[in-house]
Write a protein that binds this DNA or RNA. Structure first.
Length: 892
RNA sequence: GGGCGGGUAGCUCAGUUGGGAGAGCAUCGGCCUUACAAGCCGGGGGUCACAGGUUCAAGCCCUGUUCCGCCCACCA
C-alpha cells in the first residue's frame, strides 16, 4: 500500500500501548478490498493449496476452530510470502442432521413440525434459514484474520458440489461399490434416521442384566438367557448356544416357548456364542441386534421388527404395542416376574450407543439402506500412506489410520432426513426398475414408463465432505484449478475426524482423481479448559474466542494457539495465558515504537548491504542470532512444529533483541559518532524488518500496522518476501564474545542487586580477566558495559591485586568486583560464594568422574572428551577463584 | 478385549538421532533507568512417576509396575 504522509504523521505519535481493535478492522478491510488473499491461475509459480475443513453452516466459532484455522492461516501466509501461488479454499458444510435440527426447533416454536409443511416447504425453510442466519462463522473466521480466497467460497450443497455428489454416487453404483440392502443399522428414534457406525458414541452405562427362563415346550424345565434389553425378547426368533457346550449336549428338545408371546422358537447352535457369559444361552433378536442378525442369516431364522421409527413398540409386540421401548422394558420385567420366569437381576455396566447429534439411545434396527463397500477403496488408501505419498503428522496416528482401514466395514450412507443430497435413484412404478443416474431421468430405462419416484433418503453429510478436495476445484470437469491445486499441499484438522473425514477423503480422492487428495495431513490436538476437561456448553466451561479477541486482540489469541500447538498433546487453554501473550504483542509494538524514534528519517536498506565482518560486536551478534531465528522459523513451519516457531520468536524478540540488543545499541544511537549512528540505524532497521516479517504469519494485524509505519514506500507485508537464511550472518565467535560480555554485565548487575546498591548510586567496577583475547573484547565493549550496568568506571586487567572490601562475582575464570569502601557484608558475601562453590564443585565432581574413567576415555567420541576436559578447566579455574575470594574475605 | 498418548519446577508444558535439566506463568527482592509498570534488573525453586536393565554416559533406548486421559471393538 502507499504510505501516505497522513499515515506517517500519526506514526510519530504511536500510542504507548497497542490498540488492536481499530487496527484489526482496518487491515482486514484493506486486505479484502485489495484482494490480497486471491490465488491466481498462474501455473508458472509453484502452488500451495489448502482446503478448509468446512465448518458446519450452523456453526459458531469455538476455540477448536480458532486453533485449526490459525494453524492454516500461519502456513498459508508463510507460503504466500515465500512466493507460492497460494490458495486457501474456504466453505461450509450443510451438516444434514445438525441443520435440520435447528430448523425443526424453529418450527416447534411455531407449534408445527416438518411433516405439517411437507418436504418441499421444509427444505425451502432450511435454505431460507441458511441465507439469513447460516454461515455466520465465515465472518468470525475473518475476525480471526483468516486469509482465505473468499471469492471461491463453497457450500457442500451448492450446485457444483451437488453435481459432484451425483457423479460420484452414480459411478460407484455402476462399479458395484454402492448397493442397497437390508441390514442392521443404528437407528436414532429422535432424528428418525439411520446412522453410520462412526456416528454412534458408546458410553458406559449402569444397567441391569436380566436372567430370563425360556421354558421347554413340554413345560418341563427351561433354558436361562441373559439380556440387558428384555423388551427385545418380543422379537426373539431363536435361542442360540455354543455347539460344543457340554451343558447343552443333551437337550430334551430343540425348542423353547418364548414367554409373554407364547411363540415356539428353535434352539440353534452357533460358535459366536460366548460360553462363559451368563448361562451360555443367547436369545436371538435378528431385527434388533447386529450379532443376532448374523446368526439369523447363518441359520435361516426369520427377523421380527417390534419397534417403530420412534422407538415405540409396534403391532408385532402384541399387548405391548404402542408403549415406549423403555416403558415396555419395565412392563416386560414385571410380567416375567409375575410368571416366575425372572430368575435373577444383576447390576451390570455396559456400553450403550448414543446418537452423536442428539445423545438419544440408538436402537439397532433392521432396515433397507444404501451402503458403500469401502474395502476396495480402503486398500488404495492404505497403500498411499504406506508408500509415503501422503504423510501423517504426528506419525503415531498412522497406526490408528491403518487399524481402522484394515477393519473397515461397509458405510451406511442413507439418512432418513430431508436436508441433504437426495439420493439420485428412482424406482419405476410400472416395472419396478431401479434407476441410478447423475441427471434426473425422464423415463424408465427398461420399460420407458414415466412414473419414476425418487428415493426419499438423503446422503450422509460426510459423503459430500469426502469429495471436498476435488469437488471444490470444479470436478467432474477437468478444470485448471484441479490442474494447479490438486493434490492439495496439506490438510490441517483435528484428530477426532480422522475417520469421519480424512480417511474418506483419502478413499474418494484416490478413487476418482487417481491421486492422493493431500501430501501431508497434520492432525492437531483438542483444546481443553484449564483443568484439562473437554469444553462443552453443558459444562459451562467453553471459552468464546470472539470475546477473547475483543478483550485481548486477535494476535494475542493466535500467538497463544501457536505457542501451545505441540504435536500430539492436547492444549489446556485459559484466559491468563492469552493475557500473557498480549503482553508480548505489546512488547513488539513498543520495540517498533522505540526503533522508529531512530530510524524514521532513515532510508530503508537492502539486506544485502549489510556486511557483518567489519561491524561492532553487538551487530555481529544480533545478525547471527537473527539468522539462527530465521532458520528455526523455517524449520518449525516446514515440520509443523508450530510451538517451536512461537517460542523461538518469543525468546529471540523479547530476550535477545529487546533485552540485549536494543539496550546495547542505544550507545551507538545516542552517541555523537555519525558513522556509528548510521550503522546502528541500518542494522536495527534491517533486523526489525526481518522480525516483523517472521512474525507476520502468526500475528498478521500488529505486523501489518507497524510495517506500514516503517519509513519508505512499501506495499503490504503480506506480499513478502519472507526472510530467507543468510548464512554469512552466522557468527559463533561473535556469539561467544557476546556471552562473555553478557556474563560480565550480569555479574555487575548481580553485585548491585545482591548488595543492595541503589540503581542510581555511583560505583566503580573492577574486572580481572587472565585471558588476553577475552580481556580485549571486554575492553572494546567497556562503554556498553558501563551503560548497561550504570557503573561509572570500569577497570579491566589481566592480573593484579584484588581490591579489598569489595563485593565479588565469579564468572568462569573471570573475577568481577565492586569496591564497597569498607561497607561489604562479609557474611553475606561468604554465603553467596559458598552457594556458588557448592554448585561448581558438584559439577566438577561429575566431570572429573567421567575423565577419571578409562572406559569413558576409550569409548566416548573425541569431541565429547575434549568438551569435558574444557569444562573441567573452566570449572577448576572458577573454583580456585572462589576459594581465593573466600580466603581473602575471611582475612579482611 | 485391543491400541495410543501422558506422568519433568508451585501451575501449564518444551526437551527431534543418548553427552553439562529448560520456557512461560506464579513466587521473592530491588527499580517509574528518556520504547514498554502490559515494563526493567536480580534471585530462589526439580531423586525428570516407580523398579530393574542396556551403555563409558539415560528425562531420552529396553523390560516390568503404577496412576491419568483418549480411541477402537458384535460377550448378550
Amino acid at each position: 500500500m502507499k504510505n501516505s504522509e497522513e499515515t506517517k504523521e500519526s506514526i510519530h505519535d504511536l500510542p504507548k500501548a497497542y490498540e488492536f481493535s481499530a487496527v484489526e478492522k482496518k487491515w482486514y478491510e484493506y486486505w479484502e478490498k485489495h484482494k490480497k488473499f486471491q490465488a491466481t491461475m498462474d501455473d508458472g509459480k509453484p502452488s500451495f493449496s489448502i482446503v478448509i475443513p468446512p465448518p458446519n453452516v450452523t456453526g459458531v466459532l469455538h476455540v477448536g476452530h480458532a486453533l485449526n484455522n490459525t494453524l492454516q492461516d500461519v502456513l498459508v501466509r508463510f507460503k504466500r510470502m515465500q512466493g507460492y501461488n497460494t490458495l486457501w479454499l474456504p466453505g461450509t458444510d450443510h451438516a444434514g442432521i445438525a441443520t435440520q435440527n435447528v430448523v425443526e426447533r424453529q418450527l416447534a416454536a411455531e407449534s408445527i413440525n416438518r411433516h405439517d409443511i411437507g418436504r418441499k416447504k421444509f427444505v425451502e425453510r432450511v435454505w431460507q434459514w441458511k441465507e439469513e442466519s447460516g454461515g455466520q462463522i465465515i465472518n468470525q473466521l475473518k475476525r480471526l484474520g483468516c486469509s482465505c480466497d473468499w471469492d471461491r467460497e463453497r457450500f457442500t450443497m451448492d450446485e457444483g458440489l451437488s453435481r459432484a455428489v451425483r457423479e460420484v454416487f452414480t459411478r460407484l453404483y455402476n462399479e458395484g461399490l454402492i448397493y442397497k440392502g437390508d441390514y442392521i443399522i443404528n437407528w436414532c428414534p429422535r432424528c428418525h434416521t439411520a446412522l453410520a457406525d462412526l456416528e454412534v458414541e458408546h458410553e458406559p452405562t449402569d444397567g441391569k442384566l436380566y436372567n430370563i427362563r425360556y421354558p421347554f415346550t413340554t413345560g418341563d424345565g427351561y433354558l436361562v438367557v441373559a439380556t440387558t434389553r428384555p423388551e427385545t425378547m418380543l422379537g426373539d426368533t431363536a435361542v442360540a448356544v455354543h455347539p460344543s457346550d457340554e451343558r447343552y449336549n443333551n437337550l430334551p428338545e430343540k425348542a423353547v416357548v418364548l414367554p409373554l408371546v407364547n411363540r415356539t422358537i428353535p434352539i440353534v447352535f452357533d460358535a459366536h456364542v460366548e460360553r462363559e457369559f451368563g448361562t451360555g444361552a443367547l436369545k436371538v433378536t435378528p431385527a434388533h441386534d447386529l450379532n443376532d442378525f448374523e446368526i439369523s442369516r447363518r441359520h435361516d431364522l426369520p427377523a421380527l421388527k417390534i419397534m417403530d421409527d420412534s422407538g415405540a413398540m409396534n403391532e408385532a409386540a402384541g399387548d405391548y404395542a404402542g408403549m415406549d421401548r423403555f416403558a415396555c422394558r419395565k412392563k416386560v420385567v414385571e410380567d416375567l416376574e409375575k410368571l416366575g420366569l425372572l430368575e435373577k437381576v444383576e447390576e451390570y455396566q455396559h456400553g450403550v450407543g448414543h446418537c452423536y447429534r442428539c445423545q438419544t439411545v440408538v436402537e439397532p434396527s433392521l432396515s433397507k439402506q444404501w451402503f458403500v463397500s469401502v474395502k476396495p477403496l480402503a486398500e488404495k488408501a492404505i497403500a498411499a500412506v504406506k508408500e509415503g505419498q501422503t504423510k501423517i503428522y504426528p506419525k503415531t496416528w498412522e497406526n490408528t489410520y491403518y487399524d481402522w482401514m484394515y477393519n473397515i466395514r461397509d458405510w451406511c450412507i442413507s439418512r432418513q432426513i430431508w436436508w441433504g443430497h437426495q439420493i439420485p435413484a428412482w424406482t419405476c412404478e410400472d416395472c419396478g426398475e431401479l434407476i441410478v443416474s447423475n441427471i434426473d431421468p425422464e423415463e424408465c430405462t427398461k420399460c420407458a414408463g414415466s412414473k419414476l419416484v425418487q428415493e426419499t433418503d438423503v446422503l450422509d453429510t460426510w459423503f459430500s465432505s469426502a469429495l471436498w478436495p476435488f469437488s471444490t476445484l470444479g470436478w467432474p470437469d477437468k478444470t485448471d484449478e484441479l490442474k494447479i491445486f490438486y493434490p492439495t499441499s496439506v490438510l490441517i484438522t483435528s484428530f477426532d475426524i480422522l475417520f469421519f473425514w480424512v480417511a474418506r477423503m483419502m478413499m474418494m480422492g484416490l478413487h476418482f482423481m487417481k491421486e492422493i487428495p493431500f501430501k501431508d495431513v497434520y492432525l492437531h490436538a483438542l483444546v481443553r479448559d484449564a483443568e484439562g476437561r473437554k469444553m462443552s456448553k453443558s459444562k459451562g466451561n467453553v471459552m468464546d474466542p470472539l470475546l477473547v479477541m475483543d478483550k485481548y486482540g486477535t494476535d494475542a489469541l493466535r500467538f497463544t494457539m501457536i505457542a501451545f500447538a505441540a504435536q500430539g498433546r492436547d492444549i489446556r487453554l485459559s484466559e491468563d495465558r492469552i493475557e500473557g501473550y498480549r503482553h508480548f504483542i505489546n512488547k513488539i509494538w513498543n520495540a517498533v515504537r522505540f526503533s522508529l524514534l531512530h530510524i524514521r528519517d532513515s532510508q530503508p536498506y537492502a539486506i544485502e548491504e549489510i556486511e557483518p565482518s567489519g561491524l561492532a560486536l553487538e551487530h555481529q551478534w544480533i545478525l547471527s542470532r537473527t539468522n539462527r531465528t530465521i532458520a528455526e522459523v523455517h524449520r518449525g513451519l516446514n515440520e509443523y512444529r508450530f510451538n517451536d516457531v512461537a517460542h523461538a520468536l518469543y525468546q529471540f524478540i523479547w530476550h535477545e533483541f529487546c533485552d540485549w540488543y536494543l539496550e546495547w545499541v542505544k550507545g551507538d544511537l545516542y552517541g555523537d559518532d555519525q558513522e556509528v549512528k548510521n550503522t546502528g540505524r541500518q542494522v536495527l532497521f534491517t533486523v526489525l524488518e526481518i522480525i516483523i516479517k517472521l512474525l507476520h504469519p502468526i500475528t498478521p494485524f500488529v505486523t501489518e500496522e507497524v510495517w506500514a509505519a516503517l519509513p519508505g514506500e512499501r506495499s503490504s507485508i503480506m506480499s513478502g518476501p519472507f526472510p530467507e537464511e543468510i548464512s554469512a550472518w552466522d557468527n559463533s565467535e561473535a556469539e561467544d564474545a557476546s556471552a562473555l560480555f553478557m556474563g560480565v554485565v550480569t555479574g555487575l548487575r548481580n553485585i548491585r542487586s545482591e548488595t543492595g546498591i541503589h540503581p542510581s548510586a555511583k560505583v566503580k567496577g573492577f574486572v580481572i580477566c587472565p585471558d588476553q583475547a577475552k580481556g580485549a573484547v571486554l575492553q572494546e565493549n567497556s562503554k556498553a558495559i558501563l551503560a548497561l550496568t550504570r557503573v561509572e568506571e570500569l577497570q579491566i586487567i589481566a592480573e593484579g591485586d584484588r581490591p579489598k572490601g569489595a563485593a565479588s562475582y565469579i564468572f568462569n575464570e573471570i573475577e568481577i568486583f565492586v569496591p564497597l569502601a569498607g561497607l561489604v557484608d562479609v557474611e553475606q558475601e561468604l554465603a553467596k560464594l559458598e552457594r556458588a562453590m557448592d554448585k561448581v564443585s558438584l559439577q566438577l565432581k561429575k566431570v572429573e568422574g567421567k575423565l577419571g574413567n578409562s572406559k569413558f576415555l576409550d569409548n566416548a567420541p573425541a569431541e565429547v572428551v575434549a568438551g569435558e576436559k574444557e569444562k573441567q578447566e573452566t570449572m577448576s579455574a572458577k573454583l580456585a577463584k572462589i576459594e581465593e575470594s573466600m580466603e581473602r574475605l575471611k582475612h579482611l
